[in-house]
């Protein structure tokens, strides 16, 4: 009896100690609150699904239906029957090619606009008019030009990636602190070295802001573009599964698209820290 009590007491103390150690981690808002958020969304989904059960799966049903996709993301079972990992990679490839081409064009144009008032006057109206146009509106034009789905999709992503990068680069170049420019003047730097050694590094944080926005929008747009062009890709997958009334896979796709977007954003943030040697002061 006494032994049991002792044991109970020891266990209680041990439990208390572990709890004290764990509590700061568990009760940290950064862990609990996001979980609550996700639980809330799942609850709403569950509620809606139970009213609408002919088409819409409840969360556990969706997980079971998607088990094959989740466990075998890279299967190949025929020409059109690929795992979701392959679809994701196909979409990522389009986005990254279009985005990189866009950055290659946008950063120099942004530089030009930021440094020359004349270039600004010439190009600003064009940019202001094209910027609010939904990138999807470019799809027929690019289909007419390329006649092929894949290059057309890449072209639309390219157009999408331009505006935010141009505008932010121009802003960054135009707002390089005067002090830095004066340092380069006193050192008698030639113009091109001033651009390379002072203006470019000084405006890198702005350029990265632009790139980050561009990549985010590009990832949004690719899903819609692929719905229209078809072929292999996560966007077409969404549309295709909807045509088969297979909403479980659509839920999975939404989740995967979101995670990938988050990953892209974090990747570019990491790249910025790497390139600028500085933590983002946000």
């Amino acid at each position: 009896m006494v032994l049991q009590l002792n044991l109970a007491a020891i266990l209680a103390i041990a439990a208390q100690a572990t709890w004290r150690k764990m509590r700061p981690v568990i009760s940290r808002d950064a862990v609990v609150l996001p979980i609550l958020g996700f639980l809330g969304v799942i609850a709403v989904w569950w509620a809606v699904a139970s009213f609408n059960h002919d088409v819409m799966p409840t969360p556990p049903e969706a997980v079971i239906a998607n088990l094959d996709f989740i466990l075998h993301p890279f299967y190949r079972r025929g020409p059109g029957d690929l795992g979701i990992g392959w679809l994701l990679l196909a979409s990522l490839r389009r986005v990254l090619i279009g985005f990189l081409l866009g950055a290659l064009v946008a950063i120099p144009i942004g530089f030009l606009i930021g440094m020359s008032r004349k270039a600004m006057m010439a190009l600003n109206p064009v940019i202001q008019i094209f910027k609010p146009v939904s990138p999807l509106a470019w799809l027929p034009i690019s289909l007419a030009i390329f006649n092929l789905a894949d290059p057309s999709a890449i072209f639309v992503i390219f157009i999408t990636s331009l505006w935010a990068t141009i505008i932010n680069t121009a802003l960054g170049v135009a707002s390089v602190p005067k002090d830095y420019l004066e340092v380069s003047q006193v050192l008698e730097m030639p113009r091109w070295r001033q651009m390379l050694k002072v203006i470019l590094p000084a405006s890198l944080p702005y350029i990265f802001t632009g790139l980050r926005i561009s990549l985010g929008v590009a990832w949004l747009v690719i899903v819609a573009v692929e719905m229209l062009t078809g072929g292999v890709g996560i966007g077409f997958f969404v549309w295709d599964e909807w045509s088969r009334l297979n909403l479980s896979s659509v839920f999975l796709a939404v989740f995967v698209i979101g995670l990938t977007g988050l990953f892209l954003d974090m990747a570019i943030g990491q790249l910025e820290t790497l390139v600028t040697h500085r933590q983002r002061s946000l």
């Binding site: 830095y180 004066e182 500085r278």
Partner: peptide
Amino acid sequence: MMVFQQYSLLPW
């Protein structure tokens, strides 16, 4: 050569 009041060091 100038020494600036606000240092004007290049932060990167």
